[in-house]
Write a protein that binds this DNA or RNA. Structure first.
Lengths: 238, 238
DNA sequence: ATTTTTTTTAATCATTTGATTAAAAAAAAT
DNA sequence: ATTTTTTTTAATCAAATGATTAAAAAAAAT
């Protein structure tokens, strides 16, 4: 077996003769490479994975600030100290979840943005279908990501110089070609708005009783066909 | 002048002979009517209003959980105790702000929903223009409302039996008349998505550098004209 | 002018909460 | 079998945080 993977044994308190007690910070023993090894080798990830899974659930539902590490521990059915043993801190654990979700959300768009194969029409079909499928599985990803970014924009949006990448992407070029008279961002907003917004506003309609989980899912399935048609008619309009 | 408006003087601690000390809860002395009177009479609302204004700012920016009452006090330039003196608790103060913002957001839609005068076309124009105008003034209302509702759905969505009101609204009836083949919710999602989503996703595009505050505002001004046209072409499509 | 009421403050409390520690239990290595 | 390492726990810490208290200052009423 591999040596202690996350930390050294907790450092003991030692009392200074001034009567002040100082706490040594635990130091990580493992390098990233060793960490990777561990993940491959280890047969039983269940505790670590249980915590992660609980963290996903609780963080997604309540957001970073409203989540207490004790909530996560309870949800995972483990002792609170274990959470810090495996993940060092609430923030580290959160970052793991956040990065996972951001990746899930933005990769759908990124994949299309830089695809140079397909026609505009096909791309729109793919964006919508992929988002709807992904969001039906993870309906609260948009609110989660957006609200965490809002309360800490600096932290998660160090994606500074992506602007050119965006403007020069094949997809945006195609949009500009098709409708040079209209800022491509308008169409991006339209596609994303029609596709993602229902998942953001949906809970309200459900609470009103205007919608059930089932009828919502069905509606979104319909939208996989309808939204591309509507986008088409927008692109052709006038 | 009117008597102490918010609370009695704080009740003193009294020690039981068991060694346990109990704290009396402060009791509100003022009725709602007196409270209303006060608001009319009082010449200087500045402290109360300063706190409220600070609360609006901080709550909107960081959300309920990430906001510390000390943040609000500092922002308002007042002592922390004053906040509790005027508003009794963080939660009470928050509810005030939340209700204000929900009202602002939903009244735009409600106003259109039950308007029996105008044509579908005019209504769509009004929804879009009213939302864009309101949201340019208060860009973070949507994320604020949605994320607070997410973390506490029960509290803010006791709007239980609004479903019928919605389905029978003049606007929804008009939509069903125009396109009996398509669930009116699809069009609601489209209009709201195209109008509100940019304010939700905007911060990301700004962070990417694909958009400045000015160019965003300009884009949204354009959308006041464009979105109704696109909605029209969606309603006519196929 | 004096008393009463309202507003404001500094100090402090009690609870919550993220984190740590020391020791026990379990697993692995020898 | 014994030792070492890893995992888990119960207890506790320290800082943060919402709230309260008692008293001072200011304003209003008398």
């Amino acid at each position: 077996m591999i040596k202690n993977l996350a930390y050294t044994k907790p450092a003991p308190i030692f009392a200074l003769d001034l009567g002040v007690s100082v706490r040594e910070k635990p130091k990580i023993r493992t390098s990233i490479i060793q960490m990777a090894k561990r993940i491959k080798v280890e047969t039983d990830l269940s505790t670590e994975e249980k915590i992660k899974e609980a963290a996903r659930k609780v963080f997604m539902q309540k957001g970073y600030s409203a989540t207490r590490t004790r909530d996560i521990a309870e949800e995972a059915g483990i002792n609170l100290a274990l959470l810090n043993y495996y993940f060092r801190s609430k923030e580290k654990l959160f970052e793991l979840v956040m990065i996972e979700k951001m990746q899930k959300f933005f990769s759908v768009m990124a994949f299309i943005l830089f695809d140079t194969e397909n026609s505009l029409t096909v791309k729109v079909e793919k964006i919508v279908a992929n988002y709807v499928d992904m969001l039906l599985e993870n309906p609260d990803i948009p609110i989660f990501i957006l609200s965490e970014i809002r309360s800490n924009p600096a932290k998660f949006l160090s994606i500074a110089p992506i602007a050119d990448l965006f403007h020069n992407s094949h997809f945006v070029v195609q949009l500009r070609e098709k409708r040079p008279d209209i800022n491509p961002l308008h169409f991006i907003f339209n596609i994303m708005g029609m596709t993602v917004f229902p998942f953001i506003g949906g809970p309200i309609f459900k609470a009103m009783g205007a919608l059930t989980d089932d009828s919502f899912a069905q509606l979104m399935e319909e939208r996989k066909k309808l939204v591309p048609l509507w986008v088409e008619s927008i692109l052709e309009s006038k």
